[in-house]
């Protein structure tokens, strides 16, 4: 696997160097993520390794301090609402795009993907000014609207990818056997593309739950999300409660990622 059978000695050496280099890059990718975990369990309020004494005091602060706890709840509520909206809109759109006779495909795809591309500060400032005209700044509704726009490309991409392997004859068969359009969708199409839809929903949830910049502009103290609370903490006085929050976010990411991995494996089978 690693080497073709015809490799020369110098090729073997260069191959070893390439693999060693790749392993080093992998470490560079992964190690920084896990550096925060031991620090969040440190008893000391500063960040040195190795940790001298372990304690759960920063987690007590995270869950006991109403500011942090409310921020977590706010994030969760916004993320759930965003997921519902983005998954519905994105799945519908993907169903249209996947049809062979979808018109203006390139232009519409470019539009639907653009929220991934436009610099986040522009989205944040634009929403801040525009939503302000309708009294939507400092409301949860405004935050959910902006987050939904950011999350839909992920749903469109994942569902379109799943639909590309879906056999449309199944829908046709359902229709020919007397199922109405809606009933065929819910009983035949949706169960078949469900892994893609759930993947999209997971992406949408993560997009909203992790998003900082738009939330910074669109929320006041009452709707303040966890990332915003973390961001202002890092700016003013970085304290280990932020490490505990970061560790929780990391665990959440790993869980969502594992869920996604399980889904895609099932799909491949």
């Amino acid at each position: 696997m690693w080497l073709p059978s015809y490799a020369t000695p110098s090729e073997r050496l260069s191959r070893i160097l390439v693999v060693a280099f790749a392993v080093a890059v992998m470490l560079f990718l992964i190690a920084p993520l896990f550096i925060i975990v031991p620090l969040s369990f440190s008893k000391d309020p500063f960040f040195t390794l190795p940790v001298r004494e372990y304690s759960l005091r920063w987690y007590e602060d995270l869950f006991g301090n109403p500011r942090w706890f409310e921020a977590m709840i706010n994030s969760a509520v916004a993320a759930v609402l965003t997921t519902i909206l983005a998954t519905t809109l994105g799945t519908l759109a993907a169903l249209g795009i996947a049809r062979p006779d979808f018109p203006y495909r390139r232009a519409i795809m470019a539009l639907l993907i653009s929220p991934m591309i436009v610099p986040i500060v522009i989205v944040a400032v634009g929403s801040y000014l525009f939503f302000g005209e309708f009294g939507l700044t400092n409301t949860r509704a405004g935050l959910v609207l902006a987050h939904t726009a950011l999350a839909t490309p992920f749903v469109v991409i994942t569902v379109t990818a799943t639909l590309s392997t879906y056999d449309t004859n199944l829908t046709r068969a359902a229709n020919s056997l007397g199922a109405s359009g809606l009933s065929a969708f819910f009983r035949v199409t949706l169960p078949n593309i469900l892994p893609g839809v759930i993947s999209g929903a997971i992406f949408a949830f993560a997009t909203s739950f992790d998003e900082v910049v738009v939330a910074l502009f669109l929320t006041a103290a009452e709707q303040r999300t966890l990332p915003v609370q973390m961001f202002s903490g890092i700016r003013d006085q970085i304290n280990p409660t932020i490490m505990a929050a970061a560790t929780m976010l990391l665990i959440l990411s790993i869980l969502l990622f594992a869920a996604l991995a399980l889904l895609t494996r099932k799909k491949a089978r």
Binding site: I36, D210, M243, L250
Partner: peptide
């Protein structure tokens, strides 16, 4: 992983 978590890691 959240962009903020990764940035926090680099701050530390």
């Amino acid at each position: 992983t959240s962009l903020l978590v990764r940035t926090t890691a680099w701050v530390v």
